[in-house]
Design a protein around this nucleic acid. Structure first.
Length: 471
RNA sequence: GGUGCGGUGGCCGAGCGGCUGAAGGCGCUCGACUUGAAAUCGAGUAAACCCGAAAGGGUUUCGUGGGUUCGAAUCCCACCCGCACCGCCA
């Protein structure tokens, strides 16, 4: 949720932001509704104040008169009754007047709310303007000693790489056929060492977050109420991407949704809370199963483990004070954590500055981290892939966009010493999403004989196994 | 699935038609005492929105929505959520 006051003061900033993000939303209508609602509100409140005043004034009088009435009779009685009726009628008149305004407001307020939910957070000025992923900007690359990203995998290693799909098949790590049998397209079953490697990377990443980076480990619901989806900014825009459990159709009180990221559960934890400033920043890590419908991605990445409906992800979330510098610093730190992890695994990667058109409604800034996948990319003359980077991580900086929607605040003192409540800032970043991360691991660690070496860091999580596919 | 109970401020908890934006406690802030701290004592301390340069004023909010009433945290209705016990069960 954006700040309505800020929009009122500077609508152009939000118009430009929406335009740069490629989101079409009628901001002029929002301004019109807002000013209309405010003038109606003022009138209603004036009447209401008068009504309250009268009620306070005439209440005791009515009480007194009613007392007298008991003892009175004849003309005196009639006079008292008339006076009581008079006293009662004034507030009643106001009440009908108030209800006229209330009816009008009841029509306009939901419209404003619905529109507000659609207005994107304007991208920061230092985010490059662009319309699609093609306009994203590479910031840096990293590769382990002895691997030169400017050369092909074959030039580096002396043999042509197999794709992760080929390696998976020959090593028996995944059963796609049976996955599809059980759950349909884009489903899979990790088998044997495939499942073990999947668990190994998740646990390795999770443990590092807790042990080395001091994040608080959490388990969170992946089946959540709509409020959590809306609060985190995934609704209404991302409804299509979300599995919807229509429990209300079965008589339950409300529907449920399967989350596409642990971010939803983690951010939902403190919704509607006023936090203690001393408790910030909150640093949470969770590992959760993620569900994505991948609507609109029909035909893209249909083979292999790249684009699937269900996966597991270690996710980091930071909730910090409302300070741009703090947000920016945490963003860098959270990216550094991932770089450190990837370097410990010896996986080549690059940092990609997402352009405005690739940000989504809730981000001010987003850095994607892409691992190098030798089995991806365009095909060469021999119909073999030439290798390409593939997104494995995404680091978002959201300012107070989510915390406004979630109503997550903390107490602070303003410069003049006054106490106030402030919306927190939030950030999130992938730590490791598997099985997608298995793609670069398998493809980069493959050997000429078709075996795959287990990265050293993961071996303790693999019962000491050093190599898959060894005779 | 059955039965019972309940949802009040940052937290706990009282109130059960007007004097209640809400007792009391905890927490927090400031002050006194103290070499300092603890303890103790005193004062203060809800949120959102609107008007205002500010001082200040107004409206709303006791789960949500509707109703009764001159007036509702308090009465009525519907809904949501939670807890306890029983049944079933990983």
């Amino acid at each position: 949720m954006i700040d309505l006051k800020a929009l009122r003061e500077n609508p152009d900033r939000f118009k430009l932001g929406a335009q740069r993000k490629g989101v079409s939303v009628d901001i002029d209508r929002v301004i019109e509704l807002d000013s209309h609602i405010r003038s109606l509100t003022t009138e209603r409140e004036t009447l209401k104040a008068e009504q309250n005043r009268l009620a306070k004034e005439s209440g005791p009088k009515i009480g007194q008169l009613m007392g007298k009435l008991k003892a009175a009779s004849g003309d005196e009685r009639a006079a008292i009754e008339a006076e009581v009726n008079e006293l009662r009628s004034k507030p009643a008149k106001l009440k009908t007047q108030v209800s006229v305004f209330e009816e009008q407001l009841a029509l306009l307020e939901p419209e404003l709310r619905d529109l507000l939910l659609l207005i994107p957070l304007p991208p920061d000025d230092d985010v490059p303007v662009g319309t699609s992923a093609d306009d994203n900007v590479e910031l840096s690359t990293w590769a382990p000693e002895g691997y030169d990203l400017s050369k092909s995998f074959e030039a580096n290693r002396g043999f042509a790489p197999k794709t992760h799909i080929e390696l998976i098949e020959s090593l028996g790590l995944v059963d796609f056929e049976r996955g599809v049998k059980v759950a349909g397209t884009r489903s899979y079953v990790l088998t044997g060492d495939g499942m073990r490697l999947h668990q190994a990377i998740l646990r390795y990443a999770f443990d590092r977050m807790v042990d080395q980076h001091g994040f608080t480990p959490m388990s969170v619901p992946v089946l959540v109420r709509g409020e959590a989806m809306e609060g985190t900014g995934f609704f209404p825009a991302g409804r299509d991407q979300t599995y919807h459990i229509e429990e209300s159709k079965r008589g339950a009180g409300h529907d449920m949704y399967l989350t596409g990221t642990g971010e939803v559960g983690l951010m939902g934890l403190h919704a509607d809370e006023i936090l203690d400033k001393a408790d910030l920043p909150l640093k949470y890590v969770t590992v959760s199963t993620c569900f994505r419908r991948e609507a609109g991605a029909a035909g893209r990445d249909t083979a292999g483990l790249y684009r699937i409906h269900q996966f597991d992800k270690v996710e980091q979330v930071v909730i910090c004070e409302a300070d741009e510098k703090a947000s920016r610093d945490w963003h860098k730190q959270m990216i550094a954590i991932v770089e450190d992890l990837l370097q410990s695994l010896g996986l080549p990667y690059r940092l990609l500055q997402c352009c405005t058109g690739d940000l989504g409604v809730k981000n001010a800034d987003m850095i994607d981290i892409e691992c190098f996948m030798p089995g991806r990319g365009d095909l060469d003359d021999n119909e073999r892939p030439t290798g390409a980077f593939g997104e494995t991580h995404s680091a978002s900086r959201l300012y107070d966009f989510q915390c406004r929607r979630l109503n997550m605040r903390y107490r602070d003192e303003s410069e003049d010493g006054k106490k106030q409540t402030v919306f927190c800032h939030s950030l999130n970043n992938t730590v490791a999403a598997s099985p997608r991360i298995l793609i670069p691991i398998l493809e980069m660690y493959q050997n000429e004989d078709g075996s795959v070496t287990i990265p050293e860091a993961l071996r303790t999580y693999m019962g000491g196994v050093e190599r898959l596919g060894e005779d």
